[in-house]
């Protein structure tokens, strides 16, 4: 495997308030290799979006990326770069697409002008050249009649078209890394399928590496090569997509997979992860999943499990005591469901 394009080491992004720090991202490490898609999956408040924004150092006060975090883009540590250098990175070497294409596009400029702006800025291109690039990009993302569409305003596009335009904008400068933060969540399922297909095709032809953030395990299974699962500001599991979906190591991943209804079959009863998603203001002590875990025992309540450095790892004490993973633990939770 070739050298990573992006390597995050011990990323900690805290939000400082009068009631103490909110540890939104708390020691996340991963690497992204050229041409691959890394899925980051997790629920609201787990820190997946903040991780993405931290990569581009787009964290505003009271948020702060704590000292000791490292963001290696090839051989540059972005933590040590000045703001001017970061602006050269953003939208150029690393670009990002968001969940809400309507609010991410400026309503007073045409689609073409917005794509051309990035090209002019980073590629020092003339306006005719930038415009030609905009048309080319719109064609690439499958927007019909690109010569005309380039003059359209965002509100004249449907949701799916806007997301395509966002992708065109993000890819206009041939970035090495594309950060996609829930890019299909706001879309209808048939449109989502189109966008996923488009992203996969673009990646094949352009060769960029992609981080795909989603709460939807189905989408992740579809698009990612490798997956990290985040819970309570930490990575709790890491592996290839196949490994993770075939044989989840962490009880949280296992619970999620057991509790999601499938379009392919009706389950007798969905398994349930009791309780609710913890708040970043007060993560549970020791193993952060233990209050909701069906296997939890003394050790989980007193000692935080580490995440091994392997390619395939789970942040769980079951790793060292696998005999405690008893069958039927999830079904036994039926009674606790009500207290959630």
């Amino acid at each position: 495997m070739s050298e990573a394009v992006l390597r995050i080491e011990n990323l900690r992004t805290y939000f400082h308030s009068t009631d103490g720090p909110v540890r939104a991202v708390d020691g996340v490490s991963f690497e992204l290799r050229p041409g691959e898609t890394l899925g980051i999956v997790g629920e609201s408040g787990c820190g997946k979006s903040i991780t993405c924004l931290s990569v581009l150092r787009l964290i505003d006060p009271p948020g702060r990326i704590e000292p000791g975090s490292a963001i290696w883009l090839r051989d540059r540590n972005l933590m040590n770069e000045p703001e001017a250098a970061l602006r050269q990175v953003r939208g150029n070497q690393v670009s990002m697409i968001f969940q809400e294409p309507l609010s991410s596009l400026n309503p007073v400029w045409t689609i073409g002008e917005q794509i051309a702006e990035a090209v002019r800025l980073h590629r020092k291109a003339g306006s005719a050249e930038a415009r030609a690039r905009a048309v080319e990009m719109l064609r690439l993302v499958g927007i019909p009649d690109p010569e005309q569409s380039v003059n359209s305003y965002p509100h004249q596009f449907s949701g799916g078209m806007r997301q395509r335009a966002m992708i065109a904008m993000a890819l206009a400068c041939d970035p090495a890394v594309l950060l996609a933060d829930e890019p299909t969540t706001a879309l209808d399922v048939t449109i989502q399928a189109q966008i996923l297909e488009l992203l996969a095709n673009l990646q094949r032809t352009l060769g960029m590496a992609m981080i795909f953030v989603s709460h939807d395990l189905g989408v992740i299974a579809e698009i990612a090569d490798r997956v990290i699962v985040m819970y309570a500001g930490q990575v709790v599991e890491r592996g290839t997509t196949d490994e993770l979906f075939r044989d989840p190591k962490h009880p949280y991943t296992e619970g999620l997979l057991r509790s999601i209804p499938r379009v392919t079959q009706k389950l007798r009863r969905l398994a349930v992860i009791p309780g609710s998603v913890p708040s970043p203001r007060s993560w549970p002590p020791a193993c952060r999943f233990h209050p909701r875990c069906p296997y939890a025992w003394e050790r989980c309540r007193s000692e935080a499990p580490p995440l091994a450095a392997h390619e395939r790892a789970g942040r769980c004490w079951l790793d060292s005591e696998p005999e405690r993973r008893v069958a039927g633990a999830w079904d036994a939770l039926g009674g606790r469901e009500a207290q959630a």
Binding site: D216, V272, I273, S276
Partner: peptide
């Protein structure tokens, strides 16, 4: 709802 909470509500409705 969060993915891990959906099942709780679906089971409750059932």
């Amino acid at each position: 709802l969060d993915v891990s909470v959906q099942a709780q509500v679906l089971n409750l409705l059932a």
